[in-house]
Amino acid sequence: MTAPIIEIRDVSKRYDDGPPALAGLSLTVAAGEALAVLGPSGSGKSTLLNMIAGLDRPTGGGVTVAGVRVDELTETASARFRRERIGMVFQFFNLLDDLTVLDNVLLPAQLLGTGRAAARDRAVELLDNLGIDRHARAYPGRLSGGERQRVAVARALMNRPALLLADEPTGALDTASGAEVRELLAELNDDGQTILLVTHDLALAESCATRTIELVDGRLARDERAATR
């Protein structure tokens, strides 16, 4: 069996006095998998994603990603970890409006300190692969939702992350654009990219996930492997 890239052991998370967002969750994700996390609002999906990305810390338990105990990292180490190992795609793209598409895509490499020429080559290659190279000099505001999400994916892949996290990547897209993004994520996974996506979109889960889990009240309610994709 392929080595696990995510190991979550008995993770709990509680915000103030509210009910637990995650309640003793354990989960293992192997490299190369495309895991879709489903569940109703408030089930703990985004909290789980934040734990894996090192954006938030669990109240209890441990999170290991690519061999690193993410929950024990300092802020600086956590930032370095995200730069090197994680790519993130958000529902509302989160592109910086005052930077061009190319500059947005270049950002992770520039934060990592990659050489200028190498970073540029990689960005151009990604824009080309994702079919948005003609928009390199444009600003995100001029692009369609699907194009913006492609830019966000390009940015997420810039540093060749071990894990691509996607939070409702089709949630803000029209049907056609949503289909484009589904196809893109499936292709990426086919090429070996490990993906963890949080979604309400069953079509997305079915089209690009190799495994689906469902959270209810912060607990694992279902864990299924897809027969086909």
Partner: peptide, 16 residues
């Protein structure tokens, strides 16, 4: 602050 969050999510360290 939202842009700041994006940059931090992309790996901008506190010192940066």
């Amino acid at each position: 602050v939202h842009d700041l969050g994006v940059l931090k999510a992309l790996g901008m360290a506190p010192r940066q």
